[in-house]
Design a protein around this nucleic acid. Structure first.
Lengths: 180, 180
DNA sequence: CGTAGCATGTAACAGGTTACATGATTCT
DNA sequence: AGAATCATGTAACCTGTTACATGCTACG
């Protein structure tokens, strides 16, 4: 998609919190950010090179142990990140295949739609505990670092919406069971 | 992105409800589907051609009035749609720039983050009335067509989540006002 | 000693947006 | 008459994923 690339700023955001390797950045994407942003190695490493060329990051090669390239954000990188953070939000996008298949539910029938909703419910139920754990841990260490406040709000956004998903699932299952 | 294309089945789904032109399909994307799926002319028209070549749709050219190409789904198209609808959901993706900027909120500060959350709240408040209207209208005409039940559930998913967004906004604004 | 995880990277390919191009018709 | 909307389409471009390629290190 030719929609404006934001990965560079996501990476800078992560580097504004701590120095990281490409591998570690990918891990953050798969854990902390995974419910609202994602990226693969195939985009992370090239973007890191780009940021280096633009002077938005520096790299330190760790010699001892593994072949590690640890990235740090530069002053220019921080400035670029900051200016983006102050701009209005351009796009919030949700792409739920579940809703798509629900919308076309008549074609496949009530039973099939129930299967999808149940699977969706299951997935949400599996993820919620991790969000609760993150919430607890962030609440306990909130005083230590100001970033924790923002992490916490993000996590609580996830909790709120996931809880409302579950409520809706209950309702939808009830309605559909009445039909088929 | 090299993630499997689903637009073909979205279009078939829409055509399973009613015959449509490319232009009208785009309109459905911008209204009914817009909060969980989107597409531009640059992808819709080529996909329509593809579907035609595969025999999943037929086209009727309306001579009187405008130059209109009305598409109908074929038996093969229905079968293809049906088999997809019965497969498990592969991916539900949420990409909220708002959450990204919130997560990196410390870099821009509490005031700036408040601006984003307020804008987000505003956007949700603007969209909710349309969902309520759709809900009312679907409830009234529910008996007429079985598809309405599925539309209704989709709309109510939107309502539930949007309402929980608003609750979270209130909370987040309260928390952030306490800091700055 | 084998496996899981750490660690980096690239090439081929797919999928989609933006911007442009064109023209008819309806409404005010 | 002019603007808005209906209506179709394409080319350039961007972005990102998948799959492949490579090798080290820690642990059991």
């Amino acid at each position: 998609m030719a929609t404006e690339k934001k990965l560079d700023r996501v990476i800078l955001g992560l580097l504004s919190h701590e120095n990281l390797t490409g591998y570690e950045i990918k891990k953050r994407m798969d854990t902390t950010l995974h419910y609202f942003w994602s990226a693969s190695y195939g985009s992370i490493y090239p973007t890191l090179k780009e940021l280096l060329k633009k002077g938005y990051v520096n790299v330190t090669i760790e010699k001892q142990g593994r072949n590690k390239q640890i990235y740090q954000i530069t002053k220019q990188g921080s400035a670029y990140l900051y200016s983006w953070l102050c701009k209005p939000i351009e796009k919030d996008e949700l792409r739920y295949e579940t809703l798509l298949k629900l919308f076309f539910g008549k074609e496949a029938g009530g039973e099939q739609t129930l299967i999808h909703i149940t699977a969706f419910e299951e997935k949400v139920k599996q993820e919620l505990p991790y969000l609760y754990m993150a919430q607890q841990s962030l609440k306990q260490h909130q005083q230590e670092d100001e970033t924790h406040l923002y992490y916490l709000l993000t996590v609580e956004f996830g909790i709120k919406t996931y809880e409302s998903y579950l409520e809706w699932c209950q309702y939808a299952i009830h309605v559909l069971k009445g039909v088929c």
